[in-house]
Amino acid sequence: MAFENLSPVSDSVIAQIDLLNEQCLGHAINVHSRENGMPELKGVNIAILGVRESRGSVNHIENSIDFSAIRRAFYSLYPGNWHTVISDLGDLQPGESSSDTYYALKEIVTELVKKNVVPVILGGSQDLTYAIYRAYDGLDQMVNLVNIDGHFDLGNSSLPITNKSFVGKIIVDQPYNLFNYSNIGYQTYYNSQEEIDLMEKLYFDSFRLGSLTSELTAVEPVMRDADVVSLDLTALQSETLGFMHPAHVNGFNGREICAIARYAGLSDRVSVFGIFEYILQAKNETGAALIAQLIWYFIEGVNYRMNERLENRETDFLHYSVPVDDELLSFYKSTFSERWWIEIPFIKGVNNKLKRNTLLPCTEEDYINACNQEIPERWYKAKRKNEI
């Protein structure tokens, strides 16, 4: 049973729920407790899961990871006008080795995704994203991974996996399920020129921190195309988290990262959302409060998903054909949400990587630029990845 290794939420956190207002989230969530056991997953939309594993961190310190402060802060929040059903499954304890933890996490995520339950995972070191990615091995689909991080995390894939090399492992390890990797918020001085060149060579997407803070809406189409979203807390300004990561002086602020989390939730496609690099501190109320609000905004987004059926493009979408050089670009605009997509063409005689959903999310600006004879960069990269 995939969930047999999960430990319940601590009694002290459970006891605090009784002190909360009846309208708070703590009274609305099905919680894995020692007294009541594991909650049923039937009808559940979102499952919160802690993973107490950090041995993959290059700065690993032997200390216990405890998500109680995050849970206290989250339970005390009030829900929006939501219809989502939320469960807290408790914590996955570290196995004898990191590989054991990876295996257990992979099995849990696979089971949840099959049940159409979106797991919100609290970590631990970000190399846990590798285990989440491997959960899709048996789901017969290509995976789009979005990493909100100042680092690309490509690392040296020939060495044992760490929180700074897990993306490199994802790229080189079989089976090859990765279609696209997008980095949101990278900071140039944290990444070698070799890594920057490799991102370009593989036609991956990357968005600098400075460009996004002036135009945060650029995140939306990237999230709309993501299956897994992994957030490294070092991508935030250190003061935003109460100096949990004091060396990271630049990054997203609280409002920006909450908006990004909401974009991730709004995506009809995102099936896993992970928050990693949580470090237990003596005084961690600030960091715990912000992470609780990140979870809240993600769930808010999930609640307002539009569930647009792209296969109905002939009836529910407006179609625009734009000739650019030797290409004929096909744009689709939803008559419901007014969001835009551009078609990635299949090429005869080529072993296309994509087996489903050939529409790439884009913006109205991409359409306007195409009308001005500018090919959208993300479309070009997606087309090249589909050909090689």
Results as ranks from 00 to 15, higher is better:
A2V: 06
F3H: 00
F3L: 13
E4L: 09
P8V: 12
V9W: 09
S10E: 13
I17P: 05
D18F: 10
N21P: 00
C24W: 05
G26F: 07
G26C: 08
I29G: 00
V31M: 14
S33K: 03
E35T: 11
M38S: 07
E40W: 00
I46E: 05
I48Q: 01
V51C: 11
G56F: 10
V58D: 04
N59Q: 11
N59G: 09
N63S: 15
I65K: 01
S68N: 11
R71C: 09
R71F: 08
R72S: 12
F74V: 04
S76V: 00
G80V: 06
N81D: 14
N81S: 14
W82T: 05
T84F: 08
D100I: 13
I108T: 01
L112I: 00
V113C: 04
V113N: 02
K114M: 02
V118H: 05
V118A: 01
V120R: 08
Q126P: 03
L128D: 03
Y130K: 03
A131R: 03
R134W: 07
Y136E: 07
D137M: 13
D137G: 13
M142C: 10
M142I: 07
L145V: 09
I148R: 12
H151F: 14
H151T: 14
F152P: 02
N156V: 10
S157I: 06
T162C: 06
K169E: 02
K169G: 01
V172C: 00
Q174H: 13
Y181S: 04
T188Y: 12
Y190D: 02
Q193L: 12
I196V: 12
F204I: 12
D205G: 15
E215G: 11
A218Q: 07
A226H: 02
D227K: 01
D227M: 04
Q237L: 08
S238T: 09
G242Q: 11
H245L: 07
P246W: 01
V249Y: 00
F252I: 00
E256A: 14
C258L: 11
I260Q: 09
Y263G: 11
D268H: 00
V270M: 02
V270R: 03
K283Q: 14
G287P: 15
I291N: 06
Q293L: 14
N307K: 05
N307Q: 02
L318Q: 14
S321R: 06
S321W: 03
L328P: 03
S330P: 02
S330L: 03
K333V: 15
S334Y: 01
S334F: 00
F336Q: 07
S337C: 04
I342E: 08
E343A: 15
F346W: 06
V350Q: 08
T358P: 01
T363S: 07
T363K: 04
N369I: 09
A370D: 05
Q373E: 09
R378T: 15
W379D: 10
W379M: 07
K385P: 00
